[in-house]
Amino acid sequence: MENVVELKNVTKKFKGFSVKNIDLQVKQGFVTGFIGANGAGKSTTIKMMMNLLKPDAGEVKLFGLDYKTHEKAIKERIGFVYDGNIFFEGLNLKDIKRIVAPAYKQWDDTLFYQYVEQFKLPLNKAIKTFSKGMQMKASLAIALSHHAELIIMDEPTAGLDPIFRRELLDLLQELMIEGNRTIFFSTHITTDLNRIADYIAFMQNGELVFNQSIHDVAENYALVKGGLNLLDSDTEKAFVHVHRASTGFEALTDNIKAVKNTFGDTVVFERASLEDIMYYLKGGIHHV
């Protein structure tokens, strides 16, 4: 089984907002970073993966299984971390563990206490007294203690300081040594992804713009800079977005080859960061 998560033509409509025709595959054994601006539909998509929301149309499959018939088997294999605390605020970590642990057949107490020690988490203090970073670590300790094959995280790094973000990435990287593990996480801090992501899924206005390996992204997308005199209605077709200034233009292309054919050496190419791509595509894809 190559795809751990498979969304086929998934659509969910809300008042004034909808997620449309999502076709998304998450590859086993890799880290997929899920990016997009706030309100692009990332959380909605994650909720459909977790069966917290049911799509109006389309198909959601995890591990090749359907939620209708295999809900428990699927969730048994998922570790989840959400943005914000979902555990009973007044309880301490020990009690939360006592509630969560029996839900999983594969719960590993030794592993749990190992993470508790590694993260320096207090067992007897109410969760509501934890800092944001500690709450996140607590969620993570719980998510990782039942040998989950798929770890789904919704904005795990939001609101965390750089030091903790780094620690989290280190930890995730360690988790990936085990080859059958898959991580899917959404973030709008794209720098988190440079180090760890293998695939990037990018959402914009409720649609999936692309889901490509970081190599494909690097090979397809680039920033192109050059003089304004080079631009005309024909040559501009190679770009997804063009920004003009009196000093020249800066543009994003998703087809480096075509730009090279059109402009040759008259323009300068630069690697487009994920942030560049997000920024230039914010109006959606429209070849100018």
């Binding site: 977790m50 917290l52 428990k72 088997a73 969730k75 998922i78 959400y82 979902i86 009973f88 839900a103």
Partner: peptide, 13 residues
């Protein structure tokens, strides 16, 4: 809502 998210994310139907 948080409690429902938790319960529904655990292996329960």
């Amino acid at each position: 809502v948080e409690t429902n998210i938790l319960l529904n994310s655990l292996p329960y139907t």
